[in-house]
Amino acid sequence: MLDATRPRSSRVLERTSLIKRRAPGTDRQEQLIAANIDTVFIVSSCNQDFKVARLERYAALAFEARMTPVIVVTKTDLVTEPQNYIEAARAVSDMIDVVALDARGDAPRTKLLPWCKPGKTVAFLGSSGVGKSTLSNALLESQSIETQTIREDDAKGRHTTTRRELHAMPNGCLVLDTPGMRELQLTDAAEGINDLFADIQELAVQCRFKNCQHVSEPECAVLKAIDEGVLDGDRLRRWRKLMAEDAFNSASLAERRSRDKAFGKMVRGVKKLKDVRK
């Protein structure tokens, strides 16, 4: 909050939302991706890049951050049966809207406009080459963001966008264009995962045992739902994987924070001792 007459009295406001991940590599660090976002457009193409598991990861992050996730399925003009991709995206969660479009032309402005209101901030997240920058250009009504075509052999994109950039739409909405992320490790996202897999959570309360792991326990409502075809077994396996990954990463990062805090305390103690001796 800027105080133009007394700049020293200005203050930094608390974030309203934050998306973060465990940073790539072996170092126990976390990386902040985007903050103060109202709507997250999770972008995926109708090609080999499309993966339900990746969409679920992005959606879990958005739910954890209390942002509104919207799945945007692009390049529908390049396949004969885009409906298969659309239905797979809709199966991620019944709480998430799915928009299918060709990123070129007027479709992005007309179909995404309901979330791009004046005073709002939206962000595009997804792999390289799915059309995030093309969508951003369409909303901005310009070609200010560089784009590239994907590789033909594996449908993977090239890293054209190398940094996060915030742009203003003509109507006053802000658009965050982000680089593609090849690795998306969850951390501190347990609530977001539970929100995403609300169907499993609703079934779990009907299990005989409160701590049911849904593996081989008797009278397990989740396993019963799989046997009856109500729940997809692959969805349960993806839920287990995300929960285990989040628990491991959260514990690892908490351990690092605790160690860094102890080290900082020791450094302050040494400095204080030196000042006393002086």
Rank of each mutant, 00 (worst) to 15 (best):
T5Q: 11
R11T: 10
L13I: 15
L13R: 15
A23Q: 13
G25P: 04
D27K: 15
I33S: 01
A34L: 02
A35S: 12
I37E: 00
S44G: 13
N47T: 15
L55C: 02
A60M: 03
A60H: 01
E64I: 02
K75I: 06
K75E: 10
V79F: 07
E81S: 08
N84P: 05
Y85V: 03
I86T: 09
L101R: 03
G105D: 11
R109F: 04
C116I: 03
K120R: 14
G129I: 03
L135M: 12
R151V: 09
R151F: 12
E165M: 07
L166A: 05
L166P: 09
H167D: 11
P170T: 08
G172C: 08
L174Q: 10
T178C: 05
L184R: 07
Q185G: 10
A189L: 02
G192R: 00
I193M: 02
A198M: 10
A198K: 15
Q201T: 09
E202A: 14
H214E: 05
E219C: 09
C220N: 09
C220W: 06
K224P: 07
D227A: 15
G229S: 03
V230F: 14
D232K: 05
L236M: 06
W239T: 03
R240Q: 15
S250P: 01
S252I: 06
S252M: 12
R256N: 13
R257S: 05
K265G: 15
M266G: 06
L273P: 00
V276I: 15
